[in-house]
């Protein structure tokens, strides 16, 4: 297993290299660059801008810039933000925990909801429960995240109020009430709406997937055997069937991670959540390319790490898999 993990890591290095080249040239070959806003400002002279370009090394040939960036990155330095004049490492380090918290909790909520729904739907396929769950999950899957987010703000922040205090039920801005940072309950309270917006679609998707993968498993011989032997329903469903049905889910989750980050971008913007998605978004608008590249590279690394973990989890769940 250890050699397998090491091999996977080794394999991911060329992938990261390809990604880095692709991204760097895509971001840096665009005209304009980070000084566009300055160019438009009538108070800033063209000479000043040229001097600044020189200082930032923006006039060097692209391969030279790439080499410099790659060299720095390999030594663990993602460079300095052009706009913020701060190390990109530091900026990303501030945001990563927030995004991981949001995505992690959403993910947990997704699994807690999706597994029972999927199992129950598969248990009595084409029953009333199954049909209504299909409908509910399809609804969840068909609502654009940002539209849902806006709707949640309007319903739970603006329209419905606590009848006793007259305050809204849920807050919309940021991670904590002013002066209450570090308060876990307050944090959970702030997480409620963003997590709902982010996880609804995923609950739908995973419960559907689990349902069909359960149905496949239920047709397998060993489940039939277990049943014929008179095992209790719950044992059949949760012990035998779910265990095997969940395997493809693990792979799917790993593949879906990139999209989970995508949803996080919308949710972070709508709910003022200070995460990586917003950092990227602000950097994209300001063409702060060291930040842009840093965020994308770090996210790619995160995704690869999660993929490897998912593969290892797959093996752990399914002892039949041998890592040669």
């Amino acid at each position: 297993m250890r050699t397998y993990a090491l091999r996977r890591i080794a394999q991911s290095i060329p992938i990261l290299f390809i990604i880095s080249v692709m991204l760097f040239f895509m971001v840096r070959s665009a005209p304009g660059g980070p000084l566009t806003a300055a160019r438009r400002n009538p108070n800033i002279s063209k000479e000043q801008i040229q001097a600044l370009e020189e200082k930032l090394g923006l006039n060097d040939p692209l391969p030279v810039q790439y080499g410099r960036w790659l060299h720095d990155m390999l030594s663990g330095n993602l460079g300095d933000s052009i706009k913020f004049h701060r190390p990109v490492n530091e900026m990303i380090a501030e945001r990563i925990p927030n995004t991981l918290l949001l995505v992690g909790i959403s993910f947990l909520v997704t699994l807690i909801a999706a597994i029972p729904i999927g199992v129950w739907s598969a248990r009595k396929p084409y029953s009333k429960f199954d049909y209504s769950m299909t409908t509910v999950t399809f609804i969840g899957q068909s609502i654009p995240v940002y539209w849902l987010g806006l709707g949640l703000i309007i319903i739970f922040y603006v329209t419905i109020k606590n009848p006793v205090t007259g305050n809204p039920f849920f807050p919309v801005g940021g991670m904590n009430t002013q002066g209450r940072s570090g308060d876990v309950l307050d944090l959970l309270w702030h997480l409620a709406l963003p997590v709902t917006a982010l996880s609804l679609g995923w609950i739908a998707w995973y419960s559907r997937f689990l349902r069909s993968s359960m149905l496949d498993v239920l047709h397998e011989d060993y489940v039939r055997t277990a049943r014929a032997k008179g095992a209790a329903d719950n044992v059949v469903y949760y012990k035998h069937a779910l265990r095997n049905a969940i395997l493809p889910l693990v792979t799917l989750i790993a593949l879906d991670l990139p999209s989970l980050f995508a949803g996080a971008l919308f949710v972070e913007t709508i709910f003022s959540w200070p995460g990586m998605g917003r950092l990227f978004w602000d950097a994209a608008k300001g063409r702060d390319y060291p930040v842009l590249l840093g965020v994308v590279m770090i996210t790619a690394v995160l995704i690869i790490v999660c993929n490897i973990l998912a593969d290892l989890a797959y093996g752990w769940l399914n002892p039949q898999v041998k890592y040669d």
């Binding site: 933000s81 706009k83 913020f84 004049h85 739970f156 606590n162 205090t165 305050n167 039920f169 849920f170 807050p171 009430t177 002013q178 002066g179 209450r180 308060d183 309950l185 307050d186 959970l188 309270w189 409620a192 602000d282 300001g286």
Partner: peptide, 30 residues
């Protein structure tokens, strides 16, 4: 859920003294 959390979580903003909260759409770089 909102009721419970807002009961123990939100509510009073007792940080002492008067505060004015200002909304800005993006973060200043410096």
């Amino acid at each position: 859920l909102g009721l419970i959390l807002s009961a123990c979580g939100g509510g009073a903003q007792s940080s002492g003294g008067q505060t004015v909260t200002l909304i800005i759409p993006e973060e200043p770089t410096t």
